[in-house]
Design a binder for these strands. Structure first.
Lengths: 226, 226
DNA sequence: ACAAAAGCAAGAGCAGTGCTCTCTTTTCAG
DNA sequence: CTGAAAAGAGAGCACTGCTCTTGCTTTTGT
C-alpha cells in the first residue's frame, strides 16, 4: 500500500470512495440500469461534470463496483471457509456464504452474474477476483482427495484437453474429470443462487433455503466429498 | 384465432409485428439496455410518439419480447423432444435445444434469465410460458419412472412440504425428492447455459459444448434416467 | 519563495432518451 | 354520409452521458 501523501490525494481517495458508496446505495435501490452519474453527483452536492475527474465514464464506475463486488463476495466465501474442517463441511460453508452474500446484495450480484452490462466487456482486472470462488472450491476438492465419486462418465477428448490445460494453467493437481465436475458444480451453484435472487423459484421453492441446502449436499455427494 | 377483418386491424397487427421484429433486431445487436423506442420508430420511418399507440411504454415492449422469447425457447425445446425416445435421450435432446436457442439468441436469453429489467416485475402472462421447459422436463422424469437414483438424501420437512405443494399444483405424480432434484437440475441447466452465454467459461471450457454434453449426461445419471 | 504546471470544480451545451400533449388526418360504423 | 374512434406527426418536458471552456487551488521545480 502506498501511503497517501498530499492533502489532494487524500481528498481524492475519500471522494472516490464516497462516489462508489453512493453509487452502491443507488444500485441497491433500483439496479444498475437506473444508476445515474448525475444523480450520484446530486446526492454528493457536486456538479455532474466533476464526477468525470474520478471516473471517466459510467462504465468505469460500474467496473469499479464490479471489482469491489467480486472481492466482497470472495472475502465472504473465504471468511466462511474453515480450512481445518472436513472438505464436505467446507464446501457447504462456502456455498452458504455465496448464497448469503448474493441475497444480501442482489443488485451487486446481478452486476457480477447477471446480464453483462451493455457495450462493455470485462476488463482484465476483473478476471482474477472473479475466479476466487472457484479457486477456493478447487482447493476444497484437492483437500478431499481421494474423492468417492458415485458414478463416472467418459470425457470427450476435447473436454479432456481443455481440463488438462486449465488445471495446468491454474497449477492444480486435479484430474480432468474432477476439473469438469468442478466447473459443473460451480455453474450449478450460481445457477441456484441466480434463480433464487432473480425470483425464478417464486411459487415453487420459496423460500429457497431448504432446496439450497439439499442441492449443495447432493453436489457434495456428486463431487465425492466426505 | 380471430380473423382480422378490417384493414385497420390488419395494419395494426402487421405494424405491431414489425415493431417487435425491429426491436428484436436492435436487441440482438446491443442488448436490452440499448433498446430505444425512438430508434425503433426511426428505423420504421414513423414518429416516435406513434409507437406509443402500439406499446404504451418501453417496458411493455420488453414484456412482449419476453413473452415471445419464452415461447420461442419453449417451442425449440418441445420440438427437439421425441416423446417416444428413451427418457435419457429425451433429456439430452431438450437440454441441447435450450443451449442452442440460447447461444443463437443470447440477448433474448438474457432478457429471460439474466438480470430482471429495472423497475419491472414479471407480469402474470409471462409466468406460464416461463414454465414450459421445466414442465417438459417433469414429463420426461415421469416417463422415466421408476428412476435409478445413484444416491439419495433426506429432505428437510419444509422442502418436503414445498415439493408436495408444487407437484400437486402442477398435477404431477412426482415424489418430493424427484421434484427437488428436478428443480436442482433445472437451475443447473440454466446455470450452465447462462455461464456459457455470458462468457464465464471463457479461458476454461471454451467452447463449452463438450462440458455441456458431459454435464447433461451426469445430470441424467443424477436424475436416474436410463 | 515564486512562478509554472497540474489538478479540480462548475456551468453551459450537445445529442440522445422516455413519455405526454395537442393537433391533424385517416378509417370505420351506423 | 356523417360522427366517432383510431392513428400519425410534431413540439415540448425532464432526464441522461459526456465534452468543453473558464476560472480557481494545490502541488511542484527551480
Amino acid at each position: 500500500m502506498n501511503a497517501i501523501r498530499t492533502a489532494r490525494e487524500r481528498a481524492r481517495a475519500e471522494l472516490t470512495h464516497e462516489i462508489k458508496q453512493e453509487a452502491r446505495r443507488q444500485l441497491s435501490e433500483a439496479g444498475s440500469a437506473q444508476l445515474s452519474l448525475r444523480a450520484v453527483a446530486r446526492a454528493l452536492g457536486m456538479a455532474s461534470s466533476a464526477i468525470y475527474r474520478y471516473f471517466p465514464s459510467r462504465d468505469e464506475l460500474l467496473t469499479a463496483l464490479i471489482l469491489d463486488a467480486y472481492n466482497a463476495l470472495g472475502d465472504a466465501a473465504e471468511k466462511a471457509d474453515r480450512p481445518q474442517a472436513p472438505p464436505r463441511e467446507r464446501w457447504m460453508l462456502v456455498c452458504a456464504a455465496v448464497r448469503e452474500w448474493a441475497t444480501a446484495h442482489p443488485h451487486e450480484y446481478a452486476l457480477l452474474y447477471g446480464t453483462p452490462v451493455p457495450g462493455y466487456e470485462a476488463p482484465a482486472e476483473t478476471v482474477d477476483p472473479g475466479t476466487r470462488i472457484i479457486r477456493r472450491c478447487a482447493e476444497i476438492l484437492l483437500a478431499g482427495q481421494p474423492l468417492r465419486r458415485p458414478f463416472t462418465g467418459p470425457l470427450e477428448p476435447e473436454l479432456d484437453d481443455q481440463m488438462r490445460a486449465v488445471t495446468e494453467a491454474a497449477g492444480l493437481d486435479l484430474s480432468p474429470e474432477d476439473a469438469a465436475r468442478l466447473l459443473m458444480v460451480w455453474s450449478q451453484l450460481f445457477g441456484l443462487v441466480g434463480f433464487e435472487v432473480f425470483g425464478q423459484f417464486a411459487n415453487s421453492a420459496d423460500p429457497a433455503g431448504p432446496l439450497f441446502r439439499y442441492a449443495t449436499a447432493r453436489m457434495a455427494d456428486f463431487l465425492g466429498l466426505r
